[in-house]
């Protein structure tokens, strides 16, 4: 176990940045999001949740795949380069790290998504324990311990000092690179911090949410439940929930006409949108009820069915905070529970 004083974090960032890019929670005009760190950036490690999850670091909201150039009758195709420089994502929370594990299931299983795989290979995750969990958090429900994040490096902020513990080879390598700024220490303070965090987690209003009845085998009964017809009604179909979510993974592939060629890019999609999975014959989900149902069925039924019972919600609570109509996955789970919802 090592530590570094909070005042020295800028020096730590400078040292890390010498060899690699850094993504860290940065305050831009009052909103905290993971952004590429640059000298002078206002790093904010106190705000618990970034507005958007840090999944952009591995799966950006939009990225070019290749570009076609037309020159008379000649067409050349230039694929986008894969990520080949190392980078660090600093300050990810335990739920968001678990979110990356969910994305791994999708993008690293055959056929492997090379763009994503390259970023995963070059990225080192420095996770930060959640000093003060909030009422919207329910990571515990998914077996996540926010007091002890599992990543390449785990860190804890205790009384103005950042405690640092490498957990993987990548983590060891990064630790070596910044060793000049770290001092060795015992883990007494960290143990106390973990106990304090876990005591708060016990008190969180959603910590005892029951997922009973939600699993890969529940497909037909959940899908056909009349509850959805009620639940979806306030939904504005805005997609905010999907864009802030660390595990939403759907994307669209589109062409941008550059005038002298085509830029093929992909961008996040949202099951809440009317053109989601639009095909030549039209759309297989024709109502907002169906689109709304898709989001929760995917996270709580389809995903576990295909991924050894792993849910694709990590309880980060972002959708709980950001939905303009105050709808969210917790309300869906509770509605099924309360209405005896065809469990």
């Amino acid at each position: 176990m090592y530590k570094i004083a909070k005042e020295n974090l800028t020096a730590l960032f400078q040292l890390m940045a010498a060899e690699r890019d850094i993504y860290a929670p940065v305050n831009n005009g009052g909103q905290v999001n993971f952004e590429a760190w640059a000298e002078g950036a206002e790093v904010d490690l106190d705000t618990l949740k970034s507005v958007k999850s840090p999944k952009d670091a591995f799966f950006p909201q939009s990225e070019n795949l290749y570009t076609c150039y037309r020159d008379g009758k000649k067409i050349t195709i230039q694929p986008e380069e894969l990520r080949h420089e190392d980078f660090v994502v600093f300050g990810m929370k335990a739920c968001d790290v678990k979110g990356v594990e969910v994305l791994d299931k999708v993008f690293l299983s055959e056929p492997v998504d090379t763009f994503y795989a390259a970023r995963r290979a070059h990225g080192t995750i420095v996770a930060l324990a959640c000093h003060e969990p909030e009422e919207t958090c329910f990571c515990k429900v998914f077996g996540i311990d926010c007091a002890e994040p599992v990543a390449d490096v785990a860190t804890w902020m205790v009384e103005g000092e950042l405690y640092w513990k490498a957990l993987t080879e990548k983590g060891e390598a990064l630790t070596k690179a910044v060793a000049s700024l770290l001092t060795e220490t015992d883990d007494a303070k960290v143990e106390a911090e973990k106990t304090a965090i876990r005591a708060i987690v016990e008190k969180l209003p959603y910590s005892n949410l029951s997922l009973e009845g939600w699993n890969g085998d529940a497909l037909t009964e959940k899908f056909e439940s009349p509850i959805w017809e009620d639940l979806y009604k306030p939904c504005l179909a805005c997609g905010t929930c999907t864009f802030v979510c660390p595990t939403c993974q759907c994307y669209d592939i589109k062409d941008y006409d550059t005038g002298h060629g085509v830029q093929r890019y992909r961008c996040w999609d949202s099951c809440m949108y009317s053109d989601f999975t639009m095909m030549a014959h039209g759309n297989n989900r024709t109502s907002q009820m169906q689109r709304f149902r898709q989001r929760f069925m995917h996270k709580l039924v389809y995903f576990p069915a295909n991924n050894d019972s792993m849910y694709s919600c990590v309880g980060c609570g972002r959708c709980v905070e950001k939905c303009p109509a105050s709808l969210n996955i917790v309300k869906v789970i509770k509605a099924f529970e309360n209405q005896g919802g065809d469990r």
Partner: peptide, 28 residues
């Protein structure tokens, strides 16, 4: 520039807006 650079294009502003009542938005 600074304010709009934060936009994540989630469409919450448009979808909540009573004046944005087109059945299909040009941006869709």
């Amino acid at each position: 520039q600074k304010e709009l650079s934060k936009c994540i294009r989630c469409n919450a502003c448009r979808n909540v807006c009573p004046a944005c009542s087109c059945r299909k938005c040009v941006f869709d």
